[in-house]
Design a protein around this nucleic acid. Structure first.
Lengths: 113, 113
DNA sequence: ACGATAGTTAGCGATATGGCTAAGCATAAT
DNA sequence: ATTATGCTTAGCCATATCGCTAACTATCGT
């Protein structure tokens, strides 16, 4: 539970930065080298490196080095916990709305009697 | 697009903190006063207030004051942009996997010919 | 061997975050 | 009228984040 929570925090934090989301979207097209990723962002290499390590730390990407080139690729299933959390929340939230509906209906009915 | 992006960043950032997620889950049950929210967290009121303002800034909750009591409630549709973004990403990521499949199949086919 | 390319590490500065205390303000309760 | 309650504001501290430059390492191309 606690660890799960940490995972979620890391995921959400990783996704909270527009640059990182842009990198993810770019990587969704095709794997890319670090320099390829730096280009569009207009950021310096070390800065991009940092973003990449955040993404990797959250499990959203994997990287591997071949010679002097590091290739970054997306980990599609990494978003699953986020999706699961969202689904859970929606379920709770909707259950609450249902209870609210029931409550309102009861009040209405009581008033009609 | 830019604003949309900012919304997403604020949402993800708001969700990146376990305390704030706990508050959301608690609020999903029923609206609550600030003090009610502070209790379970073990945090001081000003700290909770700050979390609440982050949540409100992200549009995830609304608050209203009646007398000296501020009541906080969830905004269920606030998660929609997150869900949308996730769906979009999944679509792109899966499209990429499909292309990869097609590529692999072509290679295999070519080799067989 | 040498220079160019790709990435990495170290470290700086400005700003943001998450916690706190202390003090203030407004409303309810007595 | 006074006290208690609920929230708010101001401000402090430690740490984290996001950008940078400078300098370093490792590999590739010629």
């Amino acid at each position: 539970m606690a660890k799960h929570n940490l995972d979620l925090s890391r995921l959400f934090h990783a996704l909270a930065d527009p640059t990182r989301r842009a990198i993810l979207t770019r990587l969704a097209e095709t794997p890319a080298r670090v320099t390829d990723l730096a280009g569009p962002t207009g950021l310096r290499l070390p800065t991009v490196m940092r973003h990449l390590s955040v993404l990797e730390g959250a499990g959203l990407i994997t990287t591997s080095k071949d010679g002097r080139i590091r290739t970054c690729a997306i980990v599609p299933e990494a978003l699953d916990p986020v999706r699961t959390w969202l689904d859970e929340q929606r379920a709770i939230w909707e259950a609450r709305l249902d209870r609210l509906d029931a409550f309102v209906m009861n009040v209405t009915k009581d008033r009609e009697e």
